[in-house]
Write a protein that binds this DNA or RNA. Structure first.
Lengths: 215, 215
DNA sequence: GTCTATACAGGGATAGAC
DNA sequence: GTCTATCCCTGTATAGAC
């Protein structure tokens, strides 16, 4: 399977194509999405799509990697906003959980494409899948672990293994929401998202809450 | 979308068709799977398949419901084995988590079809989806909650809300494994499954462990 | 010289006809 | 149980337009 896209043509067209591919792949899934529909969504001719990307699979893998990098960056910003200068740990952990769920599971380009990628995992070449994991979920988990380590140094958390704490926080908050919505395929009420995040954070703090967080 | 299958024809043929459909839908996913492949796998003619099921979608939804009921029953048996007469709570919770993950995420008929269903969630009519949830994940969660309530009465667990405890146990043990394997699409080493389950149970017991479980 | 528009070849799918 | 009508998709080719 080829994994690189061509480089010819105008860059603004290329951007329109990748953007359209995210929308259509996200909406229809890989198999159902047609190159005709992507070309139409991008407002370019199909020939132009094939001028930039060798074939359907190359286009898909390309936008998958791009999407995972963008999403990691977005989550990084959310961590900077909520976890860099923590004053109310519980509230900040809840807010971060809610906003992360919104970002990752949004019906918009990010969440929908992520679902399409997960559905195709068995058909993605392993080197590309590893690159996707590394640029996406693994990178975010590392970022979160680093923040938890900093919080532990302030006595707000007690963690032997910050990576493990990051995974448990993610399971208890994010995955509860992801499962309920089938990774964004079905809508979940906002109050429900907040409720799951709050309950999850409380459970997390029972495991890893530090002395400085009590009282 | 039709949701009922026809009733004509020999029952053993019908069973061969549903079995084959689980295998092929599980292996290929809904869109890629062809009715030809299902007929061949079942060892019947395609006409026979259409004689029992109106169309591809009807067949898929039918086996989805059947699969979820079977899986719920299997998990029920696992609970009876590990959670009915608990002597070593931690060990039994770990064993149940490992066996449940094996059952649900198995590469065989059960896990693979579950992945196909999850990938198609957005295209499944909501009444069928609700029936699937009710016969599957929701039923299992209720069963688990009932067991946790019994364990709480023995002082082995402390739970205000047994349903919540069941969900947190599931998140901390099962979903950690499900996520790592993309719901069974990728293999996960047996030791890794045991490790995740053990760490998850320890975290769960920090939240909900009762006085009778300590020492 | 890249883009649009369109048409076309080749393959495979569903669903129904015989 | 085979055979086939009809449709759709991928990827290429052939025109002309800015």
């Amino acid at each position: 399977m080829a994994t690189t896209g061509g480089a010819a043509g105008r860059p603004e067209k290329r951007k329109a194509i990748t953007q359209a591919a995210m929308v259509v792949f996200g909406r229809e899934g890989y198999v159902r999405a047609s190159m005709d529909a992507i070309a139409a969504e991008a407002g370019v001719s199909k020939r132009t799509v094939y001028n930039h990307f060798a074939d359907k699979e190359t286009l898909f893998l390309s936008v998958a990697l791009q999407n995972s990098a963008e999403l990691t960056e977005k989550i990084r910003e959310l961590m900077a906003k909520y976890l860099d200068r923590v004053v109310d740990l519980r509230q900040d952990l809840v807010d971060f959980a809610v906003e992360r769920a919104r970002a990752v599971l949004s019906a918009g380009e990010h969440g929908a494409l992520g679902r399409a990628i997960r559905a195709e995992v068995a058909n993605i070449p392993s080197d590309v899948l590893e690159a996707w994991l590394e640029a996406g979920p693994i990178a975010s988990m590392r970022d979160l672990a680093a923040h938890f380590e900093a919080l532990a140094e302030r006595g707000l958390l007690v963690v032997e293994d910050a990576g493990l704490a990051a995974e448990q926080y993610t399971l208890l908050t994010f995955h509860g929401i992801a499962e309920r919505s089938f990774w964004g395929a079905l809508p979940v009420a906002d109050e429900e998202v907040v409720r799951i995040a709050t309950v999850g954070v409380d459970a997390f703090l029972r495991i890893h809450g530090g002395p400085a967080a009590r009282g």
